[in-house]
Amino acid sequence: MNLISTVAQRVLWAAILLLAVLVLNFSMMHLAPGDVADTIAQSMGGADAEVLEQIRTDYGLDQPFLSQLSNYVGKVLHFDLGYSYFYNQPVTKLIFEKLPATLILVITAQLLALIIGVLLGVYSARNQEGWVSHFVTLFALFGYSAPVFWTGILLLIAFSLKIPLFPVAGMVDVTVEGGAIAKFLDLLRHMVLPVITLASIFIALYSRLCRATMMEVLQTDYIRTAKSKGLSTREIIYKHALKNSLSPVITLAGLQFSAVVSGAVLVETVFSWPGLGTLALQSIIARDTPTILGILFFSALVVIVGNLLTDLALRFVDPRVRGH
């Protein structure tokens, strides 16, 4: 019961946040200098005053701001994000074409970063003078300081251009023949470099935090209790200590979803990954307002869903969050 009502509250708050995102973005678009009708006309190859007027009526641009806003929100509630005048497609369709690619990238990178980060952190906390520990310290610094697009380009130069191990760009190779397995392997081959690039920042972040919390947890009374029970080192580390070290890492991971999406935009650009980031850059340059709004909406949705999942994971890991 407790869980259900908390989740319900969370979902309601998430919906309010999303609505706020919509309103803010829409207002921002309208505050911006420049005439949308002009942009639309340009994408159609220029127009005279009469056509501009026509465009304004078609797109409802002649109406007062508030009614435009409520129109837009109403349409979004019906899963209609408008029509892209740059791509000549409904925005929803456009986004659903690109969203899976971004999700694959974001989710794989986040999971990989969590797993590797935690393993590195645990290992280096146990062997504080070992080379892995020093590696984690250095990697944490480097991973944080290197611009992600630069890391990506360097990896691209090294492992696709100089040593052609991985494809240079894209997500699938249309010339690959064969069944689902061959297609899947091809996807994996394309994923390696972008995922490593994106994950590297977060591996750095998580391993450093996990190392610090693990070192703290290993000093606690309940670890002493676990030792006094005669448990094996493996049980003490991977059962008693790890579960306690996870919640700060998961909390941090939850706060990073927005950063992961941001990183994905850059990584997609470097590796020509056909996702929302690439679409976002194109539509921003083309000033394709409906598409931009749609992407902002969906990326906020990704972050919010990510936060919700984090909360659930936290409740799973730490009973204290569940309340009394």
Partner: peptide
């Protein structure tokens, strides 16, 4: 076996 001074922190919270 041993019991400790601080029952509040000697049990694993999770």
């Amino acid at each position: 076996s041993m019991i400790f001074q601080e029952p509040m922190t000697s049990l694993n919270p999770v």
